[in-house]
C-alpha cells in the first residue's frame, strides 16, 4: 500500500470515528445530571448483596468476569516483561556498590515501611466498604517494599525479596480468583456468582465473595509489581552487556567469542540462534 493510499484509509477511519462521536455526544444526557439509569440499578444490586462501595460490587460481583480478564492482562504483561528482560547469553551480572544514604532518610524509610505495608492491607481489606480494593492496595504494598531500595540499599531489598516466592504468589493470586469463581458452579449457578453468606452491611466481612476476590487480586497485583520491578532493577543495576561498564568496574572478562562470563543464577538461559548476537565485544577493545 502506498503512503498516499494509507493516508486516505486513515482519513476515512478518522472521519468515521469523528462522525460517530459527534452523533453520540449530541444524544448524551447533560453533564452531571440527576438521572443515572445504570447507576441506580448498580447501587440497588450493590445494596442487595450488602456491599457498601457500589464500585466494588460492580467490579467483583456484577462484572466479576470482566475483572478476571483485566487481571489476566496484568498477569500476561508481567510474564512478557519477565521474558523480554531476562538475562541473555552475552550479559553478565556485576555486584552493585552499596549506596550512601543519609541517616534521617534511612530511619524514615525503616519506620515508614511497616506503615505503608499496613496501609496497603487496609486498602485491600476495606475494598467493599470504601474506595480502594485489591489493585490499589496491592500496588501500595509493593511500592512500600521498594522503599528498601530507594532509601536503604539495594542489597537490603534483595535480602527480603525472594523473586521466586513472589512469582509463586503471583500465580497463586491469579489461580485463587479463578478457583473462587468455581464456587458458583459448585452451588449450581453461574461462574463467579456470589454464593457465600452476605454478612452484615457495612462490616469487614460483608459482601460474600467480594472481599475474598479482592484479597486474591491484592496478592496477585502486589506480587506482580514486585516481580516486574525486580526485572527492571536487575537490568538497570546488575546486568551488563559485555563491553558495557556496570556501576563498578568489570572484573576479568571471559574469552573473546563466548561473550563474557556465563549467566549467573537461574534466570539466565541461552537464547536461540536468532536475534542479534553481540558476542565477542568483551574482548574486542
Amino acid at each position: 500500500m502506498s503512503p498516499r493510499t494509507r493516508l486516505w484509509v486513515l482519513a476515512c477511519g478518522v472521519a468515521g470515528v469523528a462522525a460517530l462521536l459527534a452523533v453520540t455526544v449530541w444524544r448524551l444526557p447533560p453533564f452531571g445530571g440527576a438521572r443515572h439509569p445504570y447507576g441506580e440499578r448498580a447501587v440497588e444490586a450493590a445494596l442487595a448483596s450488602r456491599v457498601a462501595n457500589a464500585v466494588a460490587s460492580v467490579n467483583f460481583d456484577q462484572r466479576a468476569f470482566d475483572t478476571l480478564g483485566e487481571q489476566a492482562i496484568l498477569f500476561g504483561s508481567v510474564l512478557g516483561t519477565v521474558v523480554v528482560l531476562r538475562q541473555t547469553r552475552d550479559e553478565r551480572r556485576v555486584e552493585p556498590e552499596p549506596a550512601g544514604v543519609a541517616g534521617p532518610v534511612r530511619r524514615y524509610a525503616l519506620i515508614a515501611l511497616p506503615v505503608v505495608l499496613l496501609t496497603g492491607v487496609y486498602v485491600v481489606a476495606h475494598g467493599q466498604l470504601s474506595p480502594g480494593g485489591g489493585f490499589q492496595g496491592g500496588v501500595v504494598a509493593a511500592t512500600g517494599l521498594h522503599l528498601l531500595y530507594v532509601a536503604v540499599d539495594y542489597r537490603a531489598l534483595k535480602r527480603v525479596r525472594s523473586v521466586h516466592l513472589f512469582t509463586l504468589a503471583d500465580a497463586a493470586g491469579e489461580a485463587g480468583y479463578l478457583l473462587l469463581g468455581t464456587g458458583g458452579l459448585l452451588a449450581g449457578t453461574a461462574y463467579l456468582t456470589d454464593v457465600l453468606p452476605l454478612g452484615t452491611f457495612g462490616t469487614l466481612a460483608s459482601g460474600g465473595t467480594v472481599p475474598l476476590l479482592n484479597a486474591a487480586i491484592g496478592v496477585e497485583v502486589a506480587a506482580a509489581v514486585v516481580v516486574l520491578l525486580a526485572r527492571f532493577l536487575d537490568q538497570a543495576i546488575e546486568i551488563v552487556t559485555s563491553g558495557e561498564e556496570g556501576d563498578r568496574a568489570p572484573g576479568t572478562d571471559g574469552a573473546p567469542g563466548t561473550g563474557g562470563a556465563r549467566p549467573a543464577g537461574g534466570t539466565g538461559r541461552a537464547d536461540g540462534a536468532d536475534g542479534p548476537h553481540r558476542t565477542g565485544r568483551g574482548g574486542a577493545g
Partner: peptide, 19 residues
C-alpha cells in the same frame, strides 16, 4: 483514604527521584 495513601506514597516517589 486518598490523602492517607498519598501521604505514604508521596515521599516514596520523591525519594525515587532523589535516589
Amino acid at each position: 483514604d486518598l490523602a492517607l495513601v498519598l501521604a505514604v506514597l508521596g515521599p516514596a516517589g520523591t525519594l525515587v527521584f532523589e535516589r
